[in-house]
Computed example of a mutant assay.
Amino acid sequence: MESTLAFPLLSFPSRPAAGEALASALASRVAEAHKAGRRARIALSGGSSPEPAYRAFAALDLNWSQIDIALVDDRWVSTDNPGSNQAMIERAFGAATGVTIHGLVRPTLSARQAEADINAIMAELRPFDAIVLGMGPDAHTASWFPGSPDLAACLNPDTRASVIGVDAGQAPVALPYRERMTMTLPCVCEAGHVLLLLFGDDKKAILESAVTAPITQAPIRAAIEAAGPRFVTFWAS
């Protein structure tokens, strides 16, 4: 079935093919940054779906010592917790010798207490060359959850914050990890490329519905609208 989306949705015959295409797209952004004589800056989302794509990216012959990788969001847990996005990213990039990974979690502080420290780091990294998003079954992306008391702050187009600590306890799909750190809408959508990796016919249908749903019910719509033509989806059934 042909997509009804107004932004690019690239369809692939398999999930590995979609992941490899995403890896290639990220490599192109890295090459552009290095050609311009600067470090490349990429931000990645967690979850189980993108890990093979990240491994494919990490296996490429790149100057990893000149690449910074940040996280779009993370659960407020240590890296020995199975819910840690940072742990997954570090595992996926084990072959990328010299890469710098910037985590969002601090071991002795709450998410809100760590905001100033992490915002100072993010200020040095922004704007990112590319950001990879995912999407949950409730049309959330990053840690922008429907029903969260912090959703408005996450999506405030005028905020100067790169990240904020959020309470996602009102979102069933977020539990049991209610405390999180997430990038804000301006930090995500000023990136040169905003890439969504999406698998399954059900997720595609959710995405198609999200473009006309209220943003409070489908927060990913905020990213779609703010990024405009820079928002590209890599999809496979």
Rank of each mutant, 00 (worst) to 15 (best):
A95D: 15
I67R: 03
E208Y: 10
P50Q: 03
D74K: 08
E115L: 04
P127S: 09
W64H: 11
G37Y: 06
L196Y: 14
G47R: 09
T233L: 10
R230F: 12
R221I: 06
A59P: 15
D80H: 11
C189Y: 09
Q86W: 09
T108V: 02
R75D: 02
D158T: 15
P8S: 14
L195D: 12
W64C: 03
W144S: 00
T79C: 07
H193V: 13
A111T: 13
L207Q: 11
V188A: 07
G136V: 04
P127H: 07
D167E: 04
D201C: 14
G98V: 09
R39L: 04
G136D: 01
G19T: 03
L198T: 15
L5Q: 05
D201I: 14
F128V: 06
A153C: 02
D158W: 14
A213S: 09
N119R: 10
W64G: 10
T182R: 01
A31I: 11
H140M: 09
R15Q: 05
S78P: 13
Q86H: 12
Q113D: 14
A218M: 07
P82G: 03
A18K: 02
Q86R: 08
A168Y: 04
L198H: 12
A161G: 08
G228I: 03
S143G: 04
A130L: 07
S84A: 08
L197C: 13
P16T: 04
P229Q: 05
R180D: 00
G94N: 10
E51I: 14
T233V: 15
A36F: 02
F12Q: 02
A40I: 08
S84R: 06
P229I: 01
S49G: 03
R112M: 07
E208D: 06
S78A: 11
A213D: 06
T233S: 15
V72F: 08
F234E: 11
